[in-house]
Design a protein around this nucleic acid. Structure first.
Length: 591
RNA sequence: GCACCCGUAGCUCAAUGGAUAGAGCAUCGGUCUUCGGAACCGAGGGUUGCAGGUUCGAGUCCUGCCGGGUGUACCA
């Protein structure tokens, strides 16, 4: 099964053939700039290298393209793949592949449990920081995007063979815990630290809002809250006991949400803010040692190169407050250091909303100036805001935060209406509603270009038409239905060793689309944009429907055609299922 | 003030610097003896916010405007 020669994707083979042709025609190593054809009438693939090489080589692009085309002529070694290479426009090389090459590549993909997605070489150690909810607060709509996008990226990078280290940077430290704990002490909240209760998190969420209000209006309470922060930092036992109790019950809540969402995060991935407390002083010392530490208005700051604030002055990043406290910049630096030195990361990915872009740009710049990880790649993966119907940040009618658990309840409930009148037993219906409901929420989020804001709309995300989870899952279901028919009718079908053949245009373009899967997965890993995979899956499902319309599968003219088409169905189903899985979305066999 | 992000069909969104800017919804019109019609085919609908520039080629890159959002020293 995973013979590397055999499982090399078609596009990889084609790229190599083009590269070789450029070398022999122009005596030069160059990227062929191979891409699927922009329009089917141009062929299957196109290579755009000639236009770019023109200036460097001092020759007309069409002349260069002509030489490359000549090097692709029959007998060149590429002829098994390429049926026709033609010159077009200013220097496009349009490629039409042989049906045999397409059929063979599709057969290889079907026989490969990786669907022709080559393992990364070399694999990297990649840290991905996502979700990061706050202790003592219920997860709300604001946590959705980081959790879902981060999870999809983690799954994709893992599939490519990288060592993915998930880091859940829990917010469990800071002034707000002084405020909350002081409030709890004040109301004689006597927590049994061993007790776990799902209701606790909702109470805490409510208490914090009350406490914050009191903190802002009651000076005596505010002073007590600040003292409580000091108690917490110095390890006062009652304070610490309450704090640990908050964490325990929060984790119970987070894990419940994670399980419903089907994200991979678990307790082993938690590395909370407080876990860096002991190394914060060392960060400041490192900055001092590097000569980057400055004092400004009593605060310890660093001025990262290239950042200007108001009135054109260098913009400071405060690492230690004038009262001696540390801030999130310090924690992020400590976390980066841990990831570089202890986790041996080669790449670190932060999935947070775009409002933190400047913060991370500064942090990355400071890391650079500290020379902590010269060969480590840092990526901030920013994303936009989820908007309500009024195009303002999504809030409840009364203006409160939208709880994630209620969003998921609502989505599942609406999904259950879709299957309500199906002839399925109740247990299956519930399971289907879960998969469709949760999948719809996730897909709606992932299918938009992440940098943009998007409007949260249940009706649209649960629609059966368009680029939605239900549409894709339904395409999968329809294929499964064919295989159920196969079982029932006793036709039997060969699963392995089936020779795929192409007998129709719809079949051919479906195969072409299937063969693009490895390229798309790699593009997602490089750009960190899951919506590209969504677009691909949507097009794949569309291609399948066209094929399905034109090509009879079970009533095909002969057994060989039927087996070939069944194999194609199987490949589409597997690709849809795998693609959705990489997005963190499940499939069902009926709906 | 400065910095970053966004602006594409009536609506919601796509488009590694590539050829005539594409989908879904909505509107209108077709197909077929349902391998699940939750389908397929077609039509109308665009000065890609505006104006310059770079390039063989710009929705995409650069500059300046307009509009919206976000950030901008002791919260995260």
């Amino acid at each position: 099964m995973n013979n590397p020669e055999r499982s090399m994707s078609l596009q990889t083979q084609l790229d190599a053939a083009l590269r070789q042709a450029i070398r022999s025609a122009l005596d030069r190593d160059a990227d062929p700039l191979l891409a699927p054809a922009t329009n089917p009438k141009f062929g299957d693939y196109q290579a755009n290298a000639a236009m770019g090489l023109s200036k460097a080589m001092g020759q007309k692009p069409r002349d260069l393209a002509e030489k490359i085309v000549a090097a692709l002529a029959p007998g060149s070694g590429a002829s098994a793949l390429i049926a026709e290479a033609t010159l077009a426009g200013p220097g496009f090389i349009n490629l039409r592949l042989t049906d045999a090459a397409l059929a063979s590549a599709a057969s290889d993909m079907l026989a490969d449990d990786r669907l022709s997605v080559a393992p990364a070489d070399p694999p990297q150690r990649i840290v991905i920081d996502y979700s990061g909810p706050n202790v003592a607060k219920e997860m709300h709509i604001g946590h959705l995007r980081s959790t879902i996008i981060g999870d999809a990226l983690a799954r994709t990078l893992d599939y490519l063979g990288h060592t993915v280290i998930r880091q859940n940077h829990l917010g469990d430290w800071g002034t707000q815990f002084g405020i909350l704990i002081e409030f709890l002490v004040d109301m004689n909240w006597d927590a049994d630290p061993k007790q776990l209760n799902h209701q606790v998190i909702a109470d805490l969420d409510k208490f914090y809002r009350q406490a914050k209000q009191r903190f802002d209006s009651d000076g005596t309470f505010a002073a007590a809250a600040r003292r409580r922060v000091v108690h917490l930092q110095s390890g006062d036992s009652r304070t610490l006991g309450l704090w640990k109790y908050l964490i325990k019950n929060s984790l119970l809540h987070f894990n419940t949400i994670y399980m419903r969402l089907g994200v991979l995060l678990n307790d082993g991935d938690i590395r909370s803010e407080s876990s860096y407390n002991a190394s914060l002083a060392g960060v400041v010392e490192a900055l001092n040692h590097a000569g980057l530490l400055k004092v400004s208005d009593g605060a310890r700051v660093v001025y990262p190169d290239g950042f200007k604030g108001k009135d054109g002055e260098p913009m400071p990043m405060i690492v230690r407050k004038s009262d001696g406290g540390y801030l999130y910049a310090t924690t992020d630096l400590a976390a980066a250091r841990y990831r570089i030195e202890q986790l041996h990361a080669q790449r670190v990915i932060y999935v947070t909303d775009s409002r933190q872009s400047q913060h991370f740009a500064m942090v990355f710049q400071v890391i650079k100036q500290l020379q902590w990880g010269d060969d480590v790649r840092f990526d901030h993966v920013p994303f936009g805001t989820i908007l309500g119907p009024d195009r303002k940040p999504f809030k409840t009618r009364s203006g409160g935060t939208v709880k994630l658990s209620e969003v998921l309840d609502q989505a599942v409930q609406r999904a259950s209406r879709v299957v309500a009148d199906r002839d399925l037993d109740e247990k299956d219906k519930q399971r289907i509603a879960q998969v469709i409901g949760i999948g719809s929420v996730k897909y709606a989020d992932l299918s938009n270009d992440r940098i943009k804001d998007y409007v949260f709309d249940y009706d649209r995300m649960l629609a059966l038409e368009g680029n939605t989870a239900p549409y894709l899952i339904n395409a999968y279901v329809r294929i499964q239905s064919i295989f159920r028919k196969v079982e029932e009718s006793g036709i039997g079908c060969r699963v392995s060793g089936v020779g795929l053949k192409i007998t129709d245009e719809a079949e051919r373009s479906l195969v072409l689309k299937l063969l693009q899967f490895p390229g798309v997965v790699n593009a997602v890993a490089e750009s960190l944009e899951p919506h590209r995979l969504c677009t691909y899956l949507y097009e794949l499902a569309g291609g399948y429907h066209q094929f399905y319309e034109r090509c009879q599968v079970l009533k095909a003219d002969d057994a060989a055609t039927r087996d070939s088409r069944l194999a194609l169905c199987r490949l589409v189903a597997r690709t849809l299922q795998k693609g959705l899985k990489l997005l963190g979305i499940e499939t069902v066999d009926r709906m």
